[in-house]
């Protein structure tokens, strides 16, 4: 299979735009919101999710013919849980500060519905290379949303933009002191949990407005 033919482009593009796992399929929101206080946390979390999603998709797709369908959920859970343990240990070894900040939310990637959902809906029905692209696309779709949310939360809530580095994070931009002196104030609410809900709500609204998707209720 050629890597960049139209079909594989569709597999990658769809979950970023018209079928985004967070804003349109509404999966995996739990971990999405908790790590959006700072941009660097969101970036590290995105990388972790992409790693777990791609590898679990590929592994499950390779063994899909040998999995009896009655016990598939247990098998999927154990594959995913092992991969998440690997990520957790790697973070503790190389990015200790970050793993303290993310605390239990790295472990909670296991119960992230995106990963189970993609395994069930795609990896068990398709070959490994397609499954890898699907994992990549969904991981990027997830990452796009949480990076947007965390960008707004950090910029307007704390007044900084932080990128990940080995330690406590590299501050790329912070709102100049002169602005504060002139009366500018950070919106403290955005750093707290309600802010995450509001911003994600607005992001979902915007995205559905762009792609013209309505949900009946």
């Amino acid at each position: 299979m050629e890597l960049f033919n139209s079909e594989s482009k569709k597999i990658i593009n769809d979950p970023i735009n018209v079928n985004n796992p967070i804003s349109l399929q509404v999966l995996g929101i739990c971990s999405a919101l908790a790590v959006t206080i700072r941009l660097d946390q969101a970036i590290i979390m995105t990388l972790a999710v992409i790693f777990v999603l791609c590898s679990s998709n590929v592994i499950l797709s390779l063994i899909r013919d040998y999995i009896p369908s009655r016990v598939r959920i247990v098998i999927m859970l154990s594959v995913i849980a092992s991969l998440v343990s690997v990520v957790d240990e790697l973070l503790q070894a190389y990015l200790y500060d970050m793993s303290k900040q993310l605390s239990v939310f790295v472990g909670l990637i296991i119960t992230n519905c995106i990963i189970m959902g993609r395994a069930e809906a795609f990896a068990l029905k398709n070959g490994p290379s397609k499954a890898f692209l699907d994992g990549l696309g969904n991981g990027l779709g997830y990452g796009m949303i949480i990076i947007i949310v965390s960008f707004f939360r950090e910029l307007f809530g704390a007044g900084t933009i932080t990128l990940p580095d080995g330690g406590a994070g590299y501050v790329l931009f912070s709102i100049p002191e002169a602005w504060y002196a002139a009366g500018y104030e950070n919106i403290g609410l955005l750093v707290l949990s309600p802010g995450a809900f509001f911003i994600l709500g607005l992001v979902i609204w915007t995205q559905r407005e762009i792609f013209g998707i309505e949900e009946g209720e």
Partner: peptide, 13 residues
């Protein structure tokens, strides 16, 4: 287009 999940998120907020 806010109906459904979007509104639910704002309410949860």
């Amino acid at each position: 287009r806010l109906r459904g999940v979007g509104m639910a998120m704002l309410l949860t907020g």
